[in-house]
């Protein structure tokens, strides 16, 4: 890219005739860059369209997950066991996580409800879910989101009700707050503590970790799913 940049500095100042002559020489000197240089200096319609497309960020549609259809087919307000869904917080390959509250008002607390994707129901899923529930229920650590409740609703949909951790991906938080190396290492040690505690699990990557206030929490412990699906 450095060479491309230098070559463009030479050639962009030239008029079209100059560019053609320059390209002939450059093609011999830098055969591997010839096509890219030709596209840049003598753009056709396709190249011009590419450049135009790069003018600005493309529109990505609603970033608001509430307006997007959930893969599970569930909607806000739906009941799952004793819980009422408020809004979808996120989704992975195997499950969705919804913000939910007790429908009977027994507890005011909002929780994260993890639900397997109905479209991906597979044999043995129920057993795996039960195993995840058992593993989670045994974990009690300040850096791991707590499991409050688990069950299967009357329609046969299994659910895990977990502590709702508000935060953002740990890596993004560190970048945004310009966290220095010593502080990052300190956070990393906290991650290791939680991982060591859940020593059976496989860490699920920094994207699954969230920084909330001054505390670090593993969001949804995807590692439990992955460990089992990976056969490890």
């Amino acid at each position: 890219m450095t060479l491309m940049s230098q070559l463009l500095d030479e050639a962009l100042a030239l008029d079209e005739a100059g560019r053609r002559a320059w390209l002939e020489r450059a093609t011999l000197a830098h055969p591997d860059l010839a096509a890219a240089l030709r596209a840049a200096l003598l753009p056709g319609a396709a190249q011009a369209a590419d450049l135009k497309a790069l003018m600005s960020l493309p529109k990505l549609g609603a970033a608001d997950e509430a307006s997007a259809p959930a893969a599970s087919g569930l909607k806000p307000g739906a009941r799952v066991g004793p819980y009422e869904l408020i809004r979808r917080l996120g989704a992975g390959g195997m499950a969705e996580v919804w913000l939910a509250r007790r429908a009977d008002g027994a507890f005011k607390r909002e929780i994260a409800l993890k639900l397997p994707m109905l479209t991906r129901l597979q044999a043995g899923l129920e057993a795996r879910f039960a195993r995840e529930r058992d593993i989670l229920a045994s974990l009690e650590h300040p850096h791991i989101a707590r499991l409050y409740d688990a069950g299967v609703d009357p329609q046969g949909l299994p659910y895990l009700a977990m502590e709702y951790v508000q935060g953002e991906p740990l890596t993004a938080w560190c970048d945004a707050h310009r966290v220095g190396i010593p502080a990052r290492l300190d956070l990393f040690l906290q991650v290791l503590e939680a991982v060591q505690y859940a020593h059976e699990s496989r860490p699920s990557g920094p994207q699954a970790l969230e920084h909330s206030g001054d505390r670090l929490r593993a969001g949804a412990p995807a590692g439990f799913w992955r460990r089992q699906t990976a056969g490890g």
């Binding site: 549609g61 997950e65 979808r88 917080l89 996120g90 390959g93 949804a220």
Partner: peptide, 13 residues
């Protein structure tokens, strides 16, 4: 399975 499930928001169609 490559996808870690997080609680982060910002998903959509």
């Amino acid at each position: 399975d490559r996808t870690p499930l997080t609680l982060s928001t910002g998903l959509g169609a």
